[in-house]
């Protein structure tokens, strides 16, 4: 995945205290960007706090084995902390369908907060990765709460994935617009306008928003590439 890190530029720039926003438009899969961010963080010996709203730990573990890191092993070593709201929901379902919606959101956030505090205390360099923050809308969270959540997270290096749709007024699109302004690096994956193609999976847009970095490396403000999932051809 070095080439992806290289294209994004995250292998050169010190990402401490910076916010990466990944907009994953419907019909694309931005997992490959996440994977390169994880590899990069591990190379720099950062600790990772991984909040998984969309998929299970097992999914990322299997994905990681193809790119040279073993999440389960790293978790045992304490390098990676995994918070799985889905698991919390699944194992507390009895309480959930009787509780109010806000309580679940609240409970999950309390758990995330306490885990996060533990990591930040012990280590300076932490990357917080949230895979698919747009899911919090599904369990009844509103815009205000999600913005305050991001403000709270934004203590260290933060990487947020948002899944967006073509409808401009949806919750995740509004939140992504907001994030786009405060993000230092904004990455967008879009499906091809012409529909499905076997040679390319989609467009990726990389937008560095810090002038100093761009001048130093002589990068343009917005770069666009086509990406394809090479895994297709392995099988």
């Amino acid at each position: 995945m070095d080439s992806v890190s290289n294209v994004l530029g995250i292998d050169k720039v010190n990402m401490d205290g910076k916010l990466i926003c990944i907009e994953e438009q419907h019909d694309t899969n931005a997992n490959f960007v996440l994977s390169s961010i994880i590899s990069n963080a591990l190379k720099r010996n950062y600790e990772i706090c991984f909040v998984l709203f969309h998929n299970t730990m097992n999914h990322y573990h299997n994905m990681g084995t193809k790119f040279g890191y073993n999440l389960t092993l790293l978790k045992e070593k304490g390098k990676v902390t995994i918070i799985e709201p889905m698991k919390i929901i699944a194992f507390n379902m009895e309480y959930i369908y009787e509780q109010t919606a806000n309580n679940i959101v609240h409970d999950i956030f309390v758990i995330i907060k306490s885990e996060l505090d533990k990591i930040i205390q012990s280590n300076e360099h932490v990357v917080i990765i949230i895979d698919d923050l747009s899911h919090i809308y599904n369990f009844g969270c509103n815009l205000k709460e999600s913005i305050s959540l991001i403000e709270y997270y934004n203590v260290s290096q933060l990487c947020v994935v948002m899944h967006t749709y073509k409808d401009e007024n949806s919750f995740s699109n509004i939140l992504t617009h907001g994030l786009k302004y405060i993000a230092h690096l904004f990455i967008k994956t879009e499906p091809l306008e012409t529909g499905y193609s076997s040679n390319a999976s989609g467009n990726i847009t990389i937008n560095w928003k810090i002038d100093d970095v761009r001048i130093k490396y002589n990068w343009p403000e917005i770069v666009k590439y086509k990406f394809t999932h090479p895994v297709h051809r392995l099988y």
Binding site: M86, K87, A90, M93, A101, Y137, F139
Partner: peptide, 18 residues
């Protein structure tokens, strides 16, 4: 819509761990 999405997310969570 709100209920449907919430239900499906919880359903997905239940399925993932069973």
């Amino acid at each position: 819509c709100q209920d449907l999405l919430k239900f499906l997310y919880y359903f997905r969570a239940l399925l993932r761990y069973s």
